[in-house]
């Protein structure tokens, strides 16, 4: 009697321990996953904030009669590209985050180009209160974007480390948790705000 019971108890104990461990890992990943979603919502928030400033910028520079057409066109194109690149928050794969970032970065450089050209070539426009206010708002938005992107990367890092590292990676793949994409900093990573609005 005793001899047959002992292995069963051991097996049950092992199963119970594994069960507790799996639940534990699962809960942790759900928590991390939620944090990533939250961070992503913030990222979208600040990018949207910037999108809302774009029409204002276009209207402001359009007031200048001979404003360089290619610069203006660059903003318009980049904006429509961003509009087309929507990401499903439940699928933040490396590819989708990369595509999103590329579209947003394109708008970044189009905007910073417009600002720089205005300051260099259209001094009267650059000196108006409206343009300077816009600069301040854009600058603040770029700053927020940098912060939220870093926060998002941090959240993804915590999540991915569970998904990728053995032995939790086993459970992650069984339960269908996939690794998520990061924002990668382009060359000159230490200063994500390449838009310098000093005046």
């Amino acid at each position: 009697m005793k001899k047959t019971l002992l292995p069963i108890v051991i097996v049950l104990a092992v199963v119970a321990v594994i069960g507790v461990w799996v639940t534990n890992v699962n809960n942790r990943m759900v928590t991390y996953d939620e944090q990533v979603s939250k961070a992503w919502a913030q990222v979208e928030n600040v990018y949207k904030r910037r999108m809302d400033l774009v029409p204002q910028l276009i209207a402001t520079v359009q007031g200048e009669a001979d404003y360089e057409r290619s610069t203006l066109q660059g903003i318009v194109n980049a904006r429509s590209h961003v509009g087309q690149t929507q990401v499903d928050p439940s699928n933040l794969s490396e590819e989708s985050v990369k595509a999103y970032q590329e579209a947003q970065d394109q708008l970044s450089s189009a905007l910073s180009r417009a600002i720089n050209i205005t300051v260099e070539r259209y001094p009267t426009l650059a000196a108006t209160q409206g343009f300077r206010d816009l600069q301040v708002q854009l600058e603040g938005t770029e700053n927020r974007i940098a912060v939220e992107r870093a926060n998002f990367n941090e959240a993804v890092n915590a999540y991915n480390s569970v998904v990728r590292r053995f032995p939790t990676s086993l459970i992650a793949s069984i339960l269908g948790f996939e690794r998520k994409g990061y924002f990668t900093a382009p060359a000159g990573a230490e200063n994500p705000v390449d838009v310098k609005f000093e005046f």
Binding site: Q42, V46, V136, E139, G140, N143, R144, I145, A146, V147, E148, E198
Partner: peptide
């Protein structure tokens, strides 16, 4: 917590 809002000057 801070989200990068604010402004600067020289």
């Amino acid at each position: 917590s801070f989200g990068g809002g604010g402004a600067s000057g020289r």
